[in-house]
Amino acid sequence: MTSLSATIALLWHESRRCGLAVWALPVAGAAVGGAVSGLPSVARSALLLASYSALACLAALCVVAVLGRARMLELHLSLPVPVPVLVARRLAVVAVSTAVAGAAGSLALVFGAGTEGALGAAAGAGTVLCTAALLSGVALWTWARWHSAAAASGALIAVWLGYALFWAANIPPGVNRPVCAVMGALLIWRGLRSLTDPDRVLAKEER
């Protein structure tokens, strides 16, 4: 069994492998929350939805950035820690960072807009997380299957445009959130699974 200190040391290493993007995300969350709370309330409701999905998109792009920074996969394949586990650890770091970003945004909203903001913030954090799960799933799955961070961000932005312009605008949140969460979990699972295929991982290395 790995010791606690080793686990902490490893997580610290992995969070550094994720790069600056992970640290920028909470800042972006707070900034978005602050900006939206400063709006007149007519504009706020219009922009709130947009900023939720923007934040989710940012989180998923963060996933792409983290995946794009993965290196020396051939060496990782030869190490005792399987590549899917390695990638999952880094994604967990992004997930934590996203949660912090959501919380920071909500806090900023509560401070800026009072109780009315508080209700919106709670609902908003859920929306952000579910949407981020879906978009991250798209990014991870594309990256794992098609060997490229560029492809992952292209697919991600296409899906995000479709989501923001059609899906979120027409589907009630009660349906939207669970569907996104389930789809996201499924895509992440499929993506991680396809990383168990060494041929595919090596192809990524040689690209």
């Binding site: 292209g154 312009l165 059609f166």
Partner: peptide, 13 residues
């Protein structure tokens, strides 16, 4: 693939 994976869905949208 990146170009197609990005542009084909965008065109469909």
């Amino acid at each position: 693939r990146a170009v197609w994976i990005g542009m084909v869905p965008v065109s469909l949208l």
